[in-house]
Design a protein around this nucleic acid. Sequence first.
DNA 1: CGTGTAAGTCATTTCTAAATGACATCGTGC
DNA 2: GCACGATGTCATTTAGAAATGACTTACACG
Lengths: 195, 195
Amino acid sequence: MTYTGTLASERSAPRKRDAEATRAAILAAAKHQFAKCGFDGAYLRDIASEAGVDAALINRYFGGKEGLFQAALKDSMFPSVAHWDRKTFGYELAKLMAGHAHQNLERTHAFAFLLQAATNPTTAPMLNVAVQKRFMGPIREWIGGPHAAARARVMASVIIGLLVERLIRDEALKGEERDVFIERAATVLQSLVAS
Amino acid sequence: MTYTGTLASERSAPRKRDAEATRAAILAAAKHQFAKCGFDGAYLRDIASEAGVDAALINRYFGGKEGLFQAALKDSMFPSVAHWDRKTFGYELAKLMAGHAHQNLERTHAFAFLLQAATNPTTAPMLNVAVQKRFMGPIREWIGGPHAAARARVMASVIIGLLVERLIRDEALKGEERDVFIERAATVLQSLVAS
DNA sequence: CGTGTAAGTCATTTCTAAATGACATCGTGC
DNA sequence: GCACGATGTCATTTAGAAATGACTTACACG
């Protein structure tokens, strides 16, 4: 992995001295790099360079790589169904999944970040706590009814699966294939709401 | 990550000089470590030590870490539905997923290995080829009927999702919860076969 | 029984990334 | 406008892993 961002030394004007903005820039770059390369593969130099910042600042602000990761996790979004309409959520969600990657870049990155976190022994423990609290909990509550926990796990599985498939193979679905995909996925998701 | 296996120097009897056996031992250890720690996190020293072998041998036999990974990928199993009974496969598969981790250690490891491979920029390209050929292809054929490709993608998603959920949270399902989980998952899977 | 080669071991080199601390500079408040 | 603290930069240290190549030992074969 080479330096891709703008080198601080190349920048025309040096960065304004704004601690908050700098922190935010680092965090954004970190989430991006962690999502793309995982915890080990994301190098502080690259993150710093992408943020247009000196690498040493990361240590100053976040106290090391792990601290940075924790901050990124805290700042990251979880897929949430809590505000969806019970009647149509299956279709809406399926449509979202079937969309082109560049239409949901933010979501895609956010999820890639979480998946990376899940598959690394260093970060997995931190993630698990967050997942239970910010993903499974809300789904369980939203589903409600008898055996909400078990049903929530199945639903979470399906959502995760759709996301993973989409992430691994970013080959877009088109035309009729896409319609079939959406219809099937929607049916599956919807069937998991009805108690 | 520290040295967990038996150090070669500690072994009572030095390893028998059997190239085939050595190769196999390295490969097994590699799959295990890659599954547990990912490509970057799995250290050749640890793999070697787990295999009861000197690290330099890995380079001799596989020509480096990437070569070792390629060999491990080629040697690894993909989830396959091809031989399942169309009538009962949903239930059988769901039951398998809901089982305790230690009951399916081999499968779990194999899948963890694949997931790790999928989430690493170095290894993802190698994996994608294999997935298409050895996972999506067979499912597509097995499903058959109209729009087999799209329907295969949904089904693959669900299978992957169940596997991932299970992998991330190894908390076992028990009692009634487990029955509900199986029943729901089975229904979902089975609904994807019917054309 | 030797001898040669395949198999295995060890020490060293090279590379790369995280962390650290000394140094420079901005810009704010007096 | 000047001084001091906060912010940013740079050079260096530390650490750890992959790769390399010279070396040693076992085993098969004559």
